[in-house]
Write a protein that binds this DNA or RNA. Sequence first.
DNA 1: CGCCGAGTTGAACTGAATCAAGAAACGTGG
DNA 2: CCACGTTTCTTGATTCAGTTCAACTCGGCG
Lengths: 191, 191
Amino acid sequence: MSNLNPALSLISSFAPLSAESADLLDSIMTEAVYSRNTILLEIGQIPFRFHFVKKGLARIYYIRGEEDVTDYFAIDNQFIGAVPALFTGKPSHKAIQVLEDSEIISFRYSDFEELCASKHDIEHAGRKMALFGFLEGQQRVESIRFLSARERYEELERKYPGIANRAPLKYIASYLGITQVSLSRIRAGTQ
Amino acid sequence: MSNLNPALSLISSFAPLSAESADLLDSIMTEAVYSRNTILLEIGQIPFRFHFVKKGLARIYYIRGEEDVTDYFAIDNQFIGAVPALFTGKPSHKAIQVLEDSEIISFRYSDFEELCASKHDIEHAGRKMALFGFLEGQQRVESIRFLSARERYEELERKYPGIANRAPLKYIASYLGITQVSLSRIRAGTQ
DNA sequence: CGCCGAGTTGAACTGAATCAAGAAACGTGG
DNA sequence: CCACGTTTCTTGATTCAGTTCAACTCGGCG
């Protein structure tokens, strides 16, 4: 049963869970389909839920000055959440938007925290996941620091094959930390 | 007793610990004084220990191509460790160097992992710390993406007051992701 | 003293941003 | 299904922050 839940499979790939813990986690999750451009979380809202993109594509973005900044993509089989606000309980500066019709599994973050408190193995998996997220962040820093715009684009294509045909170019440019103009030139190859 | 251990105080500020857990954590920690320029971990070594700079200054660095890249500073009362290698158990691409005579508290990371496994409250604090590290990484990404070299320098001065007089300029430049030439011009103000 | 690493300063260069204008794709209503 | 407006993408010209290369200064130390 719980094997059929891909969010649960991903969690338990970080650390094995007892059958009971797996069932508890499964029981707090709900699945729904959202259509393209649905906003899962608005800027200024307090986020309660953490999401998992079972199939589809979503992004986190925020507004910096005038511009829309894409912070993160989640594509088939990845978690996504407005992390800072979720942890602090404050209104979120970041929004979550579904970019194509998607199947999304989600759960209340407070339910997850409660399960962490009551089940040591879940807390353990949670710690491993947080560590993994930390390492991913480190890699992102290195990528921004040392790779040229073109190299970052190639890296993105390796990490998310086909994303260039699924997400609008401007969001990808903003994720890469460049302008859409530059990305357009990179793709043209004639730089 | 355990209150006198600042590394322990910092950990328990993330989540309260039982007296027993605090004692256990205290018991795996050792304190030592290292002199300026001591290398706590060489590149290529497998790291076993996690460190806490009680008083003093240390940095993490690695070699990228020909150049020495400073990844992180730890100044009075901060943790420092070769994180990726510590978690994977592989030889580290990063080294740890003490930059001024320093008092360092450290512990075997495997001891910490064992305590996490045996004491739920320690695991909980560990998860909170990992989440905190994750958020810090996010801020670092944003800083690199959007702030100019001068703004990043000003941010560093705010975060680590006085570091400019304690660490060689070239390490600071490299931490900021700029050349020492640029940093010199920024400090001169005549840009 | 003279050497050596750390820091400063100048001149030329460059990757990417900005400004601006045009082309293509997209969606919505008639 | 077409027409129109809007958004997305491309292309060109110009500008700028920060790099690179190179020479010079300063302070510490054998």
